[in-house]
Simulated scan of single mutants.
Amino acid sequence: MNRIASRLNRPRMTEAPKQPFRGAPDFWKSYKWNEQECIERFTQNFISVGGHVAHLASMEDVSVFIVDKARELEAKYLVRQNEPDLEQLQLESKLPDAKIAVWNSGDSEPAYWKERSAEADIGIVMADHAVAYTGSVVVMSSPHKGRSVSLLPTVLMIIVPVDRLKTRLGEVLLQFDELGPGQLPAGIHFISGPSRSSDIENDLTIGVHGPGIVYALVVG
């Protein structure tokens, strides 16, 4: 450290610098957008990283949107989380020519569901939280909400109820902190648009490590 300080032509620090602030400042903790602002900012930020956003009034409208996209993409195989809210979509009856798989239903082994998700044209999940300021969607795993549904299909549809859309990331992280380590799920995934990867020459490639097309369907 003495050598580094001498090379920088500055005196060696012997005491730790004072830190009058720790964590987010008070003004940021109280920073909040109204519902319409959250929707607009989330939409702008999600689109800016290559995602797609649709603002829909009801789950019925979500069902129509997914069915139309599935037909447009000629999707033959869809996989969704095993959640009651997603049963409202009634995709089985609306897409009779496609196979609809429901995560962890039946007696199949876990590896079976991972393989099915990797083969799926479209994966459908419910967002647990969403953050307008960063354009991120949070999806947590559970026995009925396998992480593979959001990570492996070619196209991902994330349904975001508007009441789960927050202004700041801290509003979401605080809830995880309150749960404590013993109650946290095995996976907490922050999704900001499609999978993006760049090599050392900064050549951007979409969809290498996950879905190449991601839709956030804001409902309400």
Rank of each mutant, 00 (worst) to 15 (best):
A5V: 13
A5L: 10
R7D: 09
R12N: 06
M13Q: 14
T14C: 12
E15F: 04
P20G: 06
A24R: 06
A24C: 12
F27H: 15
K32T: 13
K32W: 07
N34P: 05
E35R: 11
E35F: 04
Q36C: 06
E37H: 10
I39D: 04
I39S: 05
T43F: 02
F46W: 07
S48A: 15
G51P: 04
H55N: 14
L56T: 00
L56Y: 00
L56D: 00
S58N: 07
V67K: 01
K69S: 08
A70W: 04
R80W: 06
Q81L: 11
Q81Y: 10
D85I: 10
D85F: 02
L86M: 08
Q88W: 01
L91T: 04
D97L: 05
K99A: 03
I100Q: 00
E109G: 13
S117V: 02
S141F: 00
G146P: 03
S148G: 06
S150C: 11
L152G: 00
L152K: 03
L156F: 07
I158F: 00
I159H: 08
V160K: 09
V172Y: 07
L173K: 05
L174A: 10
D177C: 04
E178F: 01
G180F: 13
L184C: 11
P194R: 02
T205L: 08
I206Y: 12
G207N: 02
V214A: 05
Y215D: 00
Y215G: 01
